[in-house]
Amino acid sequence: MENTIKVERAILDLTQDDLAKKIGVSRQTINSIEANRYVPSTVLALKLSEVFGKPVNDFFKLSKDD
C-alpha cells in the first residue's frame, strides 16, 4: 500500500502532530503510515478522508505487492 498523506498534509499546512491530534492517534503513528510501515484500519482511513476532504482512494493506492 502506498500513500500520499505527506502531500495532503502539506496542502493543508498541517504538521504530523496536528494531523495526529485531529484523528486521535500519536504522531509516531502518522509517521509510520507516511513511511508505509503501517497500514491503517478502515476507520482511521475514513478519518483521514474526512480531514483531507477527499475519498480514501485519492491518497491510498494499492502497490504491486498487494
Partner: peptide, 9 residues
Amino acid sequence: KIEDEMVTT
C-alpha cells in the same frame, strides 16, 4: 499514554 490502533497492533 496515547493508546491508538497501531499501539494495539
